[in-house]
């Protein structure tokens, strides 16, 4: 009797693993079957056109660039912030009320839905004080508002979203540095600051890189923040050509799209109405994510070998 129960339980466990795998691959196969026709060299190298006509819709060059931009800027904002917080929590924080509040606040922040961060961002960044991040609206009587949508603004929203995750991973990495390293450094007369910057952080490098990749993965996949803080334009709306070096600041202060909003816009739920292009862009997005995962695996395994 017990044996039957055991084997039932076992087969359930194997079955659930099997389902996970099958689900994973059936999603990818489904996307591939639906979207492979859309993918071509042209699809990857031309900018999208604002039109409902599928044959003139162009490609996904600027959405890919948009994804790249917000990911890089978002991480650049979040990382120093997160490292500082992680260092504070693991090296400086004393056991008191403020510290435990900090810890709870970061936990709560990690649970904030992205749509809430997005609507908060809309209300905050349209304040005129933040106009330098997007553009000020000029020429409307009685109105003093910032546009509140740009790559900068969107990246800041993203930074807030990934902050708690990056903090947690960084904190673990910093904590994993053996106490003996610190003691050795301090014993040699180094100050606490230089111990942290010259000894602790370099030793925690691998963990911090993992945190970066984790954060990047989350930024790449988000739609709600992009939808509200980047606006989901189809084209890059700054001065053209947007990729020109002289225009970099204007491009970042203007709007565009990312792969996720491109997929949303072209699915039946958006108004673009070109599902095949949405599937094509999904394939590209998944390939980017697989590449990122592979890099993370590579870094992880290389580090592991070193430690052994």
């Amino acid at each position: 009797m017990n044996k039957i129960r055991d084997s039932l339980q076992q087969s359930f466990a194997w079955l659930s693993a099997l389902i996970t795998i099958v689900a994973c691959f059936s999603i990818i196969v489904f996307l591939f079957l639906k979207g492979y026709k859309a993918i071509s060299f042209e699809f990857l190298t031309t900018n999208p056109n604002p039109t409902f006509q599928a044959q003139e819709a162009g490609g996904i060059l600027s959405p890919m660039a948009g994804t790249f931009l917000i990911t890089i800027i978002g991480i650049l904002i979040a990382l120093p912030w997160a490292i500082a917080t992680a260092i504070y929590l693991s090296e400086y924080a004393k056991k008191n009320l403020i510290t435990s509040y900090l810890k709870i606040a970061i936990d709560v922040l990690s649970g904030v839905p992205t749509i809430v961060i997005a609507i908060f961002g809309v209300a905050l960044f349209t304040m005129p004080a933040f106009g330098f991040l997007s553009s000020m609206i000029e020429g409307i009587e009685g109105a003093n508002k910032a546009f509140g949508k740009s790559f900068f603004v969107c990246s800041m929203g993203m930074a807030v979203m990934v902050l708690p995750y990056v903090i947690k991973t960084c904190e673990e990495a910093v904590k994993a540095v053996p106490v003996s390293y610190r003691e050795a450094s301090l014993a040699l007369g180094a100050s606490k600051r230089s111990t942290i910057t010259k000894v602790v952080l370099p030793s925690a490098k691998r963990g911090i890189i993992t945190a970066v990749i984790l954060g990047m993965g989350r930024i790449i996949g988000d739609t709600a923040i992009v939808w509200l803080l980047l606006g989901g334009s189809i084209r890059m709306t700054g001065p053209q050509p947007w990729w020109h070096f002289a225009n970099w600041l204007d491009t970042l202060k203007n709007t565009g799209s990312t792969l996720t909003t491109y997929i949303f816009f072209n699915s039946p739920a958006g108004e673009g109405n070109k599902a095949e292009l949405a599937f094509g862009a999904s394939i590209v997005l998944i390939i980017i994510i697989i590449l990122l995962n592979t890099v993370a695996d590579f870094i992880g395994s290389r580090g592991a070998v070193k430690e052994e």
Binding site: T20, G221, T223, T260, I263, F264, S267
Partner: peptide, 18 residues
């Protein structure tokens, strides 16, 4: 595979669902 499944953006799940 699990990590990949975790990394698939929600909008793609939405698209597949739809």
């Amino acid at each position: 595979s699990t990590r990949l499944l975790a990394a698939i953006p929600s909008v793609i799940y939405g698209l597949v669902g739809l």
